[in-house]
Design a protein around this nucleic acid. Structure first.
Lengths: 205, 205
DNA sequence: TCTATTTTTAACAGAATTGTTAAAATACAT
DNA sequence: ATGTATTTTAACAATTCTGTTAAAAATAGA
């Protein structure tokens, strides 16, 4: 057995599986479509990953493992200004979401809500770093204090996530091609960084 | 045949179908689950709607028909101030999204992209009213002119849509119950209306 | 009560899909 | 060249789901 070959085969399968699961979801995905995409035989899928469920679990877990660390960066580099930290976060997050489907995670969580709690136990403690960080900024009068940090969290994440998962609909509504939409999105992180910074500075109470 | 009975049975089926399709998607939905929810026999589903596909189409079309009119209100009541218009839109949109799943539409559109174009032909012309309206506001120096109206469109829709479709994840990340999240959301339209108005007023170039 | 309609029951056919298996073919390393 | 691991082929069992049907039962309305 050649480790190289085996790895690349396994990776080819995982890559194909990821694409199919992302666009069709667990229920709509077909093992046949995955093996076609990976350019291998369907029986080989079962040779590598026994069942569809196990293969899906692998894809889902890996997606979540890539995703969660992004959310817990708010207590790093504390000497950095909050403006810079925010801007970096937005750029990193949006770049990430361009190649990692948030909609995939969301769809599967709604299909099977226990996926969320069971798969994120070890990360959960890190998830409220954002709120703590922004509460501190407010105490130190660095940002406005009249907006609940939870709202700020929701606003930032909505602005980052939705434009990428809703690209098809937005480009359709705005009557631009998906290429034009991608070009529009290239300038988007800059725009919302600036807007959010303006907003958070505004009217310090 | 009693029209009353027949209608309420059909409605019971549609209501059940809607719930199941919304949480499981077309592929994950089971006719058995729908009939169980509607508390009727599975054979009766086929008596009312011949096939699963036809039933789904009905649900999808109705969801889209409820959704699209919301997007084309920007040329009504032109004497109203843009601030009030924006606020009204946000409240109406968010209220709507509390009982109408945007994620459902999005998931099915991604599964089968042609659904979008084929089902919205008659509405499409109305979809760019927003951009026209905001371009006019900019020309008249009523709002800042340094942000592309397409960005404004994306920002407003992201702020309205995502918090509702991502509720499960947000309440989990913020470590609050879904009840607390709902309470938080009660104040949300007011917050983002004010923030958006501040933003759009800011620095008129 | 009688009739027409709605609903249930139960059984079934057909299709699609997953997962298994055994054997053959292929690739590869030593 | 030999032996081992990988991959293909092809066939199949088992399950699940959709959709159909016919007959019986229940229900509502005249």
């Amino acid at each position: 057995m050649n480790v190289e070959t085996s790895l690349s085969t396994e990776e080819a399968i995982l890559e194909a599986a990821r694409k199919v699961f992302e666009s069709k979801g667990f229920d709509g995905a077909r093992m046949q479509e995955i093996s076609d995409r990976a350019r291998i035989n369907r029986a080989l899928l079962h040779y590598y990953f026994r069942t569809k469920a196990k293969m899906f679990e692998r894809i889902f877990d890996e997606a979540l493992e890539r995703f969660l660390p992004l959310l817990s960066t708010w207590d790093q580099d504390l000497e950095e200004s909050w403006e810079l930290k925010l801007k970096r976060f937005i750029i990193k997050f949006i770049t990430f979401l361009k190649t990692n489907s948030m909609l995939f995670l969301l769809r599967e969580i709604i299909r099977k809500p226990e996926l969320l709690a069971s798969k994120t136990e070890k990360h959960r403690k890190r998830l409220n770093k954002f709120v703590r960080y922004f509460d501190r900024l407010k105490q130190e009068r660095l940002i406005r204090s009249d907006v609940d940090s939870k709202y700020i969290y929701i606003i930032i994440h909505s602005l980052c996530s939705f434009p990428l998962m809703n690209g098809i609909v937005f480009s359709y509504s705005l009557r631009i091609s998906s290429k034009e939409y991608d070009e529009l999105m290239a300038g988007y992180p800059e725009i919302i960084s600036d807007l959010l910074i303006q907003l958070l500075k505004y009217q310090k109470n």
